[in-house]
Design a protein around this nucleic acid. Structure first.
Lengths: 339, 339
DNA sequence: AACATTTTTGAAACCGGTTTCAAGCAACAA
DNA sequence: TTGTTGCTTGAAACCGGTTTCAAAAATGTT
């Protein structure tokens, strides 16, 4: 019951293993009768090429290293899913390592991936500097997903968070809102900062002064957002709308308002960011900026495959699209005068 | 700029590559001075062992094959995350392939994994028969997650869906409900059938006759559930509670009720199944049966590692725990009489 | 000092493929 | 018929490690 190698096939088909290799890879012509004998043998013995040996021989492991971030966020999960799907019909398989949003962890993870001789790298989010990335990833084809690198030396696929934040906020402004609270994301997180920048830009454009007291603590979790919005309500500070840095925060906000019997959108409007599955089923369905997460993963993996075929790839900036649902209402004139 | 192999290290340290291998693996004693020279060299040259070569040599690829199901469900995503985390501090890495809930796809995926000589397999969900599994996985250590196999020849980790369905339904009954609609899951899906069985058992135990008209079409999506519940409302059929086969369906149900201005839980109570992150932030927070998804993935990967170390593993049946929140209310006596 | 025992070491085989190289062979043109 | 060309083919080297085996060196014993 020994394992079936090309050597075995060779013996059965009465040829050399070189020839077996050739028909299996179609790398050279082989006389039809021998080819048939070989094919028959592989079929009959259920031969399955050893990818490991093959990798060693030709230097290509046929694996893609994926750096994920264990944050249990639907957004990042969807990206991973997209990567898996995108690689599905290629002969490459993804191998995952967690970076934990932490520099040394990420470097360790990437090194491990490199030790496995992955042919390319997909970095989902993370905190590595551009210098770190180019140093640790060496010359391996790499694409960064859901993150914008300043220099863009390493190709990335990401949505324009500033624009997204701007669009979301402007949507509220267009509905007459001027007292718009912003639930911030994690302080050091670039996405959070960008969305905030978009918020600021929209306010400025509309001539609305930024009110620091309407800037709420947040860390992308619903719990934190709920807490912050509750506090905001207690503060008696007037506000008519909330822009949450992500959908999870919007959920938290919605619950906080529910607890105080504040109606959405009649009394307070909400806009989120991400458009995760559940958002369309919030009550009321959440208006939010859609980030095409799965598509990004898909796109990135496809692009990486092309890079492996020698094609160049340039960074892609995607625009988030506003999904208008029912969590935003036109402001009643009652409070529209008091800017 | 050639790659650093143990051969290079050997030359630099003036020893044979056998010796280098020995200190790197600690597989045999080496004279301290030589050991130091070798260690220095590896350090200085930044040597990183080629996992592929190592795998070929000793027959262990240090990878775990994970069969996932691309259904974009938070539940399955969480399991995958759990697997990644569980393998984090081992020297094994997970390699993912999608099965698409489809027999031939799953078999293809597993074969591909086997071609990569994975040391063990983790099968998340899926539709493969026990015979299929043992045939295709050969003798490789395998654990099935989130699925109960009848014979239990292959070890599995799963929650007791019948019990979960029973607990959920009984909770509603204990609150005085007797007209309890059930949003079914995918027809051919075992989990769905089991939860339904639990529902039936609870009804029977309480002497409530099963009303087929209260069995709603469902496929585990919120959309379908919303549609079914809407239809139920239109049918004028009386019901005071809904047990949804999963949380997504509960979301759909909740939205359908919201649209018709039916208050939850005052007029209709809802219980879900899964306890995904967002459920605690539904308005009102959803009472649901918690499945410890991430823990299951974690547990399974740890268990698989132990199997690889020769320890035996027996299937684990977990109990879902009812998370009591605010979507269930005691039935007002108004309708409690009409059974 | 001589011998037995244990430890350290390098050469070589091996894992299962791919690829180079040159030889073998058939077909073709002169 | 002979020389040239082109296609098939097998032997051998190679990828980068691990492991066996026997020789060499170190250590212990008498």
């Amino acid at each position: 019951m020994k394992t079936v190698t090309i050597q075995v096939i060779a013996e059965v088909a009465k040829v050399s293993k070189s020839t077996v290799s050739r028909v299996l890879n179609g790398s050279a012509g082989v006389r039809p009768d021998k080819r048939k004998a070989i094919l028959d043998a592989t079929q009959r013995l259920g031969f399955q090429p050893n990818v490991v040996a093959r990798s060693l021989a030709n230097g290509r492991s046929m694996t893609i290293g994926v750096l994920t971030q264990n944050i249990g966020s639907p957004f990042y999960d969807a990206i991973s899913q997209g990567v898996i799907v995108g690689l599905q019909n290629s002969s490459y398989s993804p191998i995952f390592m967690d970076g934990q949003w932490e520099r040394t962890s990420e470097i360790t993870a990437i090194s491990a991936l490199l030790g496995r001789r992955v042919d390319g790298l997909l970095l989902i989010g993370g905190v590595l500097s551009e210098k770190d990335i180019s140093r640790v990833c060496k010359d391996r084809p790499t694409i960064v997903i859901a993150r914008q690198l300043a220099k863009l030396k390493t190709p990335c696929i990401f949505v324009d968070n500033v624009d997204g934040g701007y669009v979301a906020t402007r949507h509220l402004i267009e509905h007459g809102h001027r007292r718009i609270a912003f639930i911030q994301g994690l302080a050091q997180h670039q996405d959070a900062m960008d969305r905030f920048a978009g918020y600021c830009r929209a306010l400025k454009e509309a001539g609305i002064e930024l009110n620091r007291r309407l800037l709420l603590d947040g860390d992308f979790t619903a719990t934190k957002a709920e807490c912050s919005v509750t506090r905001l309500c207690e503060s008696k500070l007037k506000f008519t709308a909330i822009f949450a840095a992500n959908d999870a925060s919007a959920f938290g906000a919605r619950l906080a308002l529910y607890r105080r019997n504040i109606r959405v959108p009649d009394e307070v409007s909400i806009v989120g960011f991400d458009d995760q599955m559940e958002s369309a089923f919030l009550t009321p369905p959440l208006t939010t900026v859609r980030q095409p997460a799965q598509e990004m993963g898909n796109l990135a993996s496809q692009a990486l495959l092309e890079m492996l075929n020698g094609k160049a790839f340039k960074s892609q900036l995607l625009k988030g699209s506003l999904q208008i649902r029912e969590s935003v209402a036109r402001l009643k004139n009652r409070s529209s005068k008091q800017a």
